[in-house]
């Protein structure tokens, strides 16, 4: 089985999907000739032509808005927003249009689009090239929000997102693009949206997380194992919809839950997950639910000391999980 980076897994999935279904088009800023600023779409225009891999004008509301129209008229657009931080000019089109169109038309229109966007920090991207924006969208019924953690998941979730009949936001962590590698089967497979995945079995503490933080949590778990602390790592994979049964199952099993995300603490996914646990598994808990997340500052600063202070790291996860285990 081929070992691919997270980025290669996404690119090869796009290529496979483009070959499979001629209705798929990709567009966004710099996705064509240059192959995207991170080279995710590199080579695709050469293979599929300028009609399907389109360099769009610099206008995010138009990128998403035209994708909505193109989807309704029979295509399967997979638009790219160059950085998740640049998605906000398209907020109205995503939240008020894409997410509401099925509902407002009583099920007669649908918007099968996949909006891909690189998110996350730790790459000297500062306030506008580092953000985690998933919580804004996870609040919105009608949207699905996918944040893959591994090359394998990246492929199966992207294929499932493209197959989905509803708008899906697909967030790719920039730091994962080249740092994460893993085995990826060549044949097409789908990972159902809305199913979490237990990435590591453990008995003392459950770490519930998603995206890049999954690999960080696994590193922390390896270290804690040497100290005799057994950590279970649950990867949510999608933050809307959440996999309630997987969340409850791990909470009941270990009785100690640490929720980790890079996104700001307040109003983040952690709050929702902990509410679900409180509602469904309160009396199975042996300790308060803990959260480890980006601090409540507007976005990640540039200068190294400030960036490190913001970023959730394997060490911070290890320390917090240890604290919880000893509670």
């Amino acid at each position: 089985m081929a070992v691919l980076s997270y980025l290669e897994a996404i690119r090869e999935t796009l290529r496979q999907e483009l070959r499979r279904d001629s209705r798929i088009i990709i567009y966004g800023e710099d996705v064509g000739v240059r192959g995207g600023v991170f080279r995710v779409t590199e080579g695709l225009q050469k293979e599929f032509g300028e009609d399907r891999i389109i360099d769009s004008p610099l206008a995010e509301a138009a990128i998403v808005g035209t994708a909505i129209g193109a989807a309704i008229n029979g295509l399967r657009p997979v638009p790219e927003i160059q950085f998740a931080d640049f998605i906000f000019p398209a907020m109205n089109q995503i939240v008020q249009e894409a997410a509401r169109i099925r509902y407002r038309s009583n099920g007669t229109f649908a918007v099968p689009i996949v909006i891909r966007a690189p998110y996350g920090g730790g790459v000297h991207g500062a306030l506008y090239h580092s953000q985690s924006v998933e919580a804004f969208f996870a609040h919105v019924p009608g949207l699905k929000v996918v944040v893959p953690a591994t090359p394998y998941d990246a492929k199966g979730l992207l294929a499932a997102a493209i197959q989905d009949e509803d708008p899906v936001l697909y967030f790719e962590h920039k730091a994962a693009y080249r740092s994460l590698k893993g085995e990826v089967p060549e044949e097409r497979y789908l990972i159902p949206i809305g199913q979490a995945d237990r990435k590591r079995e453990g008995t003392d503490v459950s770490v519930i997380t998603y995206g890049l933080m999954v690999s960080y949590a696994l590193k922390a778990a390896d270290e804690l194992e040497k100290e005799g602390i057994s950590v279970e790592v649950v990867d949510l994979r999608t933050v809307r919809p959440l996999d309630l049964s997987a969340i409850i199952e791990t909470a009941r099993k270990t009785g100690k839950v640490l929720i980790v995300h890079e996104d700001n603490l307040t109003g983040g996914i952690g709050g929702e997950v902990s509410a679900l646990i409180a509602e469904h598994a309160l009396f199975d808990l042996d300790a308060p639910i803990m959260r480890l997340a980006g601090p409540d500052v507007p976005a990640m600063p540039y200068s190294a000391p400030l960036e490190h202070a913001f970023m959730v790291t394997p060490e911070k996860i290890r320390d917090k999980a240890r604290e919880l285990a000893k509670f």
């Binding site: 088009i25 808005g65 035209t66 909505i68 129209g69 193109a70 989807a71 309704i72």
Partner: peptide, 8 residues
């Protein structure tokens, strides 16, 4: 923008 997308 939707009209432009339909036309695309």
């Amino acid at each position: 923008v939707h009209a432009a997308g339909l036309a695309l």
